[in-house]
Simulated assay, not measured.
Amino acid sequence: MAATPTFALPSGFLGLGRGEAGARFTVAGIPFDLGTTNRPGARMAPAAIRAASRMLVDGDNPVTWRDPAALGISDIGDFAIALGDIPASLALIERQAASMGHLVALGGDHTVTLALLRALSRRLGGPLGLVHFDAHVDTWPDNFGQVLAHGSVFFHAVEEGLVDPAGMVQVGIRSPVGRAIHDWGTARGITVITAEEVHLSSPAAVAERIRAVIGARPAYLSFDIDALDPAFAPGTGTPEVGGLATWQAMGILHRLGGLDWRGMDVVEVCPPFDHAELTALAAASVAWAYLSLFD
């Protein structure tokens, strides 16, 4: 148990003070929400997630019996962005991420994932497998005429060869979507596990489907907090009813150890619409569960 009360710990992720890049795992915030198409406010998420994460420092994860805080984590603070400029911000985020090792990114809206995938794919020299939790497929070619936005991230990621669609699985999908948009992804080999399928299945069965899709590929986790039902995560920009319960998401994540993970992000937390830190704590717990997969 922490020697200092959780509320009095430093403001970094898991109560860490400000660190430097070069640790085994680097945590960085990305306070960006220019790509949102509904409610803004995700720029405030990194601070909220960090604050809520102080609830997770009292010991081991009781599922994996690992303490993520003991892994060697450095919270380097927030990436710089180009205020008011989406393309320039993505270029700047990509440059900063390019020098990072194993990055855990706290968004920010989902647009930032495109920059993170560009940096990681180019550093590894090839496409990644992708586990994508979300209410939305995010494969629209544009959002209301804006080519770069949070709903077009994975259209561009597939088109640019950053991810292998045959090694990509989307979990929690349930929002309204044009049939042509849905079929564009499945025609390229993307596996879609809807929220209803998760409800009718089990975390263990969903995790096995994910593992079968990812296989031995280097893999990336992108977790949009609106994969969770608004009852569990009200503070998000584009909520959709019928989503995953927090226990389902955590149960799936806890069963994804042993995959060749290379990085992750948790995005779309919108603190102005949160209540009692429910959404921020859920997001912090997603990153904590991910880090709990490592020895």
Results as ranks from 00 to 15, higher is better:
residue 95 R to P: 04
residue 95 R to G: 14
residue 96 Q to E: 14
residue 97 A to S: 08
residue 97 A to T: 02
residue 97 A to K: 05
residue 99 S to Y: 09
residue 99 S to L: 11
residue 100 M to Q: 11
residue 101 G to W: 11
residue 102 H to Q: 04
residue 103 L to S: 13
residue 103 L to K: 04
residue 105 A to C: 09
residue 105 A to E: 04
residue 105 A to G: 09
residue 106 L to K: 02
residue 106 L to T: 03
residue 108 G to I: 12
residue 108 G to Q: 04
residue 109 D to C: 09
residue 109 D to L: 10
residue 111 T to E: 01
residue 111 T to C: 11
residue 112 V to N: 01
residue 113 T to K: 00
residue 113 T to R: 01
residue 114 L to F: 09
residue 115 A to V: 12
residue 115 A to F: 00
residue 116 L to R: 05
residue 118 R to P: 02
residue 118 R to W: 03
residue 119 A to E: 10
residue 121 S to W: 05
residue 122 R to H: 14
residue 123 R to M: 11
residue 124 L to F: 12
residue 133 F to R: 10
residue 135 A to L: 06
residue 135 A to P: 03
residue 136 H to K: 06
residue 136 H to G: 11
residue 137 V to Q: 13
residue 137 V to H: 07
residue 139 T to V: 13
residue 139 T to W: 08
residue 140 W to I: 04
residue 141 P to E: 15
residue 142 D to L: 01
residue 143 N to R: 10
residue 146 Q to A: 05
residue 147 V to K: 08
residue 147 V to P: 01
residue 150 H to A: 01
residue 151 G to D: 03
residue 151 G to Q: 03
residue 152 S to F: 01
residue 153 V to H: 03
residue 154 F to K: 06
residue 154 F to H: 15
residue 155 F to D: 03
residue 156 H to M: 04
residue 156 H to N: 06
residue 157 A to H: 12
residue 159 E to Q: 15
residue 160 E to T: 01
residue 162 L to F: 05
residue 162 L to E: 02
residue 162 L to Q: 05
residue 162 L to N: 04
residue 163 V to G: 02
residue 163 V to Y: 00
residue 163 V to F: 08
residue 163 V to I: 15
residue 164 D to L: 08
residue 165 P to Y: 14
residue 166 A to F: 12
residue 167 G to S: 12
residue 167 G to H: 14
residue 168 M to D: 09
residue 168 M to E: 07
residue 169 V to Q: 02
residue 170 Q to Y: 13
residue 170 Q to H: 13
residue 171 V to Y: 00
residue 171 V to I: 15
residue 172 G to P: 02
residue 173 I to A: 01
residue 174 R to C: 00
residue 176 P to L: 07
residue 177 V to F: 04
residue 177 V to M: 12
residue 180 A to Q: 13
residue 180 A to T: 13
residue 181 I to M: 14
residue 182 H to Q: 11
residue 183 D to K: 13
residue 183 D to E: 15
residue 183 D to H: 14
residue 184 W to N: 11
residue 185 G to M: 14
residue 185 G to K: 09
residue 187 A to D: 15
residue 188 R to L: 09
residue 188 R to M: 06
residue 189 G to N: 11
residue 190 I to L: 15
residue 192 V to M: 09
residue 192 V to Y: 00
residue 194 T to P: 00
residue 194 T to D: 00
residue 195 A to M: 08
residue 196 E to C: 00
residue 196 E to N: 09
residue 197 E to M: 03
residue 200 L to R: 15
residue 200 L to W: 09
residue 200 L to G: 06
residue 201 S to W: 10
residue 203 P to Q: 10
residue 203 P to S: 14
residue 203 P to R: 07
residue 203 P to G: 10
residue 203 P to F: 06
residue 203 P to N: 06
residue 204 A to G: 05
residue 204 A to R: 10
